[in-house]
Amino acid sequence: MAAEIYLETPLTEEKARSLHAGDRVLLSGSIFTLRDAGHARLIAALDKGEELPVDLQDAIIFYVGPSPAAPGKAIGSAGPTSSYRMDPYTPRLLKEGLRGMIGKGYRSEEVVAAMKEHAAVYLGAIGGAGALISKTVSSAEVLAYEDLGTEALRRLQVKDLPLTVVIDSEGNNLYETGPAEWKAGL
């Protein structure tokens, strides 16, 4: 197993290029949350030439719709949702400076091509481990789209959020190499 890499935000191009598919990362710092409906709004804002509610340069978006926070907790359960639903919007956001995405599952060829072009990385969080992930979140603040409820745009402060680099800035893909290596070992 690969050694764990401690990574802090912002995710600069240099840091992004140093990550390789299969690396295990512990991420700390500030990240945004956004999923289906919020992505549609960001794109609508770009279409209209409006300023985005947040600066995406060197930012990381975590595809998550958390469950409500119980009293005394920063957030509820907070595991990744399936990333492919964000694919239609993603190349546009990468062009705006988005450097990292946290989710689970396959990405489209268009997204991988845009990631290579803009030196971005796709990080996998463990789907269905929302309770464990919630323990790494110290605060959650709604920044925009509050009417979307769980789908609002939030800023999370995280400490040692455990992730795996799934697709790196050169397009190497753990979803292809991982199963292939396992099969080769049969």
Binding site: V64, P66, G76, S77, G128, A129, G130, A131, T150
Partner: peptide, 8 residues
């Protein structure tokens, strides 16, 4: 008492 997954 945290949902095991956020998608309940």
């Amino acid at each position: 008492s945290i949902p095991m997954c956020q998608d309940t």
